[in-house]
Structure formats: C-alpha cells, structure tokens
Amino acid sequence: MIITNVNLVLEDQTVKGSIEIEGGIIRTLSDTVSQLPQAIDGEDGWLMPGLIELHTDNLEKYFTPRPKVDWPPFSAMSAHDAQLVSSGITTVLDAVALGDYREGGKRHDNLDKLIETVIESQRRGVNRADHFLHLRCEVPHETTVGMFKRYAHLPDVHLVSLMDHAPGQRQFVNVQKYRDYYQGKYKFNDQQMATFEVEQRERSQVWSAPNREAICQYCREHNIPMASHDDATVAHVEESKALEMVIAEFPTTVAAAQASHALGLKVMMGAPNVVRGGSHSGNVAAHELAQLGVLDILSSDYYPSSLLDAIFRIAHDDRNEYSLATATQLATINPAQALQLDDRGVIAEGKRADLLLAHQRHDHTYATRVWREGKAVF
C-alpha cells in the first residue's frame, strides 16, 4: 500500500511525500509524490503516527450511559473503541479506578466486567485500536492494595498510577474547588459534604503512605511503569522519583512540573486543558508548561477528540517553541517510550504502520482516515 501527496509528520520535521507499507510495517519513505494509479491520495493532509492514549476513563461512559443504566459490555466496548479510532487513537490504555470515594461506588460494581471486556475484546481481535489497562490506584482506601493485587498480574496492565484526592492537597489544594466538584458529582448537601471531607482526610492519613509503598514495590519487582498523579510540590516530585515513577500525571503547579521534567519524569497534561485554555480544577494550565518547554505527554482524559485538537493548538501557539513534529511527539513517541512500546509512535522504516491522516476544515482538525498495522480502521 502506498499513501502519497501527504505531509509526513516525522519525529523532528514535516516532509511532503509518500509512504509505502507492507505486512503492517512501514517499508520506505519518499520525499516525492507517487504517480502510481493504485496509490492512495492523501489530498495534502498530514500523515501522522497513530496517537497513543495513556489515561482515559471514556469506557465508563458507555458502560453506564445514564444513572442506573447498565449497557451490554461488548456493545459498550465497540462504541468506545470506535470513538477512539475516529479521533486518531490507535493505542489506548483504558483506565480503571481501584479504591473508591464512597462505599458501594458504581465504579466498583462495574470493575470486573469492565476489565474482562477490555481483555476479552482484545483477545478476540474485534477492537480497532490496541487496548491495554491502566490501573489508577486511589491510595487512601483500605481496599486498594488488595484490589490492586487482584489485577496487577494481568499481562494487559501497562501502567499503574497512584492518586490521593483527599481535600487540601495535590489536585484539591483549593478546598472550595473540592467541595464544588464532589457536591456536584454526588449531590451531597452541606452536612454530607462536611462528613465526606473528614472521612477522606482520615483515610489519607492512615492509608496513603503504606499503600503507595506497597504498590510501588510490586511494580518495581514486576517492571510495570508507574505514574504519579497531581504532584503539587517539589517534595511530592522527589518522592515520586525515589519510588521510580516514569510519568508525572497532571502536576498541579509549575514548580512540580519543572521538577518532574528535570528529574526525568515525563510530564503529562490533559488535552482538554489545552483546548479549554486551562484546568477545570483551577490548577496550572497546560499551555503554561508548553511555554516553559516542560510538557512531554498529552492525554485526552475524558474527551477523546481533544488529543488531536490539542496537538495542532500547541503547534500553532506562537507563545511556545513546539513545531507540529514536536507537538505530535506529545501523543506518539513520548508515551510509547514511557511504556517501552518500541515498535510504534513514529513514522520510520521498520515501525508499525499505525497511521492517522488529518485534514483541517473550517479551522478545526479532523482525523479523516486511520490505519492500524496497515489495515484501514476508520
């Protein structure tokens, strides 16, 4: 298969030309336009590596599309998978939360079913994208380590992150933002919210440190990449480095992001943060970190199409020094390297032909065609 008349977004530059694919692998690149009649005309679009998504809970929306509505698992998985591929994502880590903020939380009810569906749909070969698992461990909870060990041995687990959403620190230094978020999410009245706050602080004090150490020790012993979450201070970052984290998910301050980047942790921010122009929690904006040159990875988080959109927004923002090639790295080679997925994430000879063809229409960028291992999936 030959794709021609495209702007090839390579690792460090963009080149007008063609690409030849055989057996699901990129065989040759050319800086000329092919005249062969069987070549696919890319119509002067951007041909990019398929995007790699490390942190999305988008699948949960399809499992429970409305309160008290459970959807058939494989139907939910198919719809989720199709949305990701149509956004240019060819490799995805579906994030599942271990440890809950409330007893009887709906996430726990769906956990086994969700994990089994991701694994089984991948095994059957019905997914358009490659799907793996990201275990998000809420450390201030008595059940977290037990739940983690229940799933950590699965070969589909490619990333583990550690979170503490207790009020007054990390993501929720601003306690009012914490109250706004959880009262909106759980419909607590003021008294219920006050009780919830006290419970979460107490759990954090008791469980956070020992759970963090136990989970990290297991991951180190089994070579599972780890990510910190919502680091806010240099001390948080130094702890993450000492525990051998490789990714800093959503640092909440400039100081934490700069320290993470300097210590070799890849700084990951949400693509919705880029598209919206700032954090919904009132924390540091991703475009600020791009201006400082310490933004390493983007994640679509809760909105899949934001990933491609954010790449082009960063590339076109004259306040930073990211070109389209280096902005594309944020959702391709950088996350691939963090997970040791050395066969993808870049357009180069010998790499997987996971590819995305993008065009701009009316000032918005769309994925118009997508291939996984050379097979058209969108």
Rank of each mutant, 00 (worst) to 15 (best):
D130A: 11
H131R: 04
L133S: 12
H134I: 04
H134N: 07
C137L: 06
C137D: 06
C137T: 07
E138K: 05
P140W: 01
P140L: 06
H141S: 15
H141K: 14
T144E: 00
V145I: 15
M147D: 13
R150S: 07
R150A: 08
R150C: 05
R150Y: 01
Y151R: 12
Y151W: 11
Y151G: 12
A152S: 14
H153M: 08
D156T: 05
D156H: 11
V157A: 09
H158G: 07
H158C: 13
S161E: 06
L162W: 02
D164M: 02
H165G: 10
A166Q: 02
P167D: 06
Q171V: 04
F172P: 07
F172H: 04
F172K: 01
F172G: 09
F172Q: 03
N174A: 08
V175P: 01
K177G: 09
K177S: 15
D180K: 11
D180N: 14
Y181I: 01
Y182P: 14
Q183N: 13
Q183C: 13
K185N: 14
K185F: 14
N189D: 15
Q191R: 11
Q191V: 14
Q192M: 04
A194V: 05
A194Y: 05
A194P: 02
F196E: 11
E197P: 00
E197V: 03
E197W: 00
E199H: 07
E199K: 09
R203N: 15
S204H: 05
S204A: 15
S204R: 01
Q205D: 13
Q205C: 03
V206L: 12
V206T: 12
W207Q: 10
W207G: 10
W207A: 12
S208M: 00
S208T: 01
P210H: 06
R212A: 04
E213C: 01
E213R: 09
E213F: 02
A214C: 07
I215W: 04
Q217R: 14
Y218P: 01
Y218I: 07
Y218Q: 09
C219D: 09
R220V: 05
H222N: 14
N223K: 08
N223V: 02
N223W: 01
I224N: 02
I224T: 11
P225S: 09
P225I: 03
M226L: 13
M226F: 04
A227W: 07
A227I: 07
A227F: 11
S228A: 15
H229S: 10
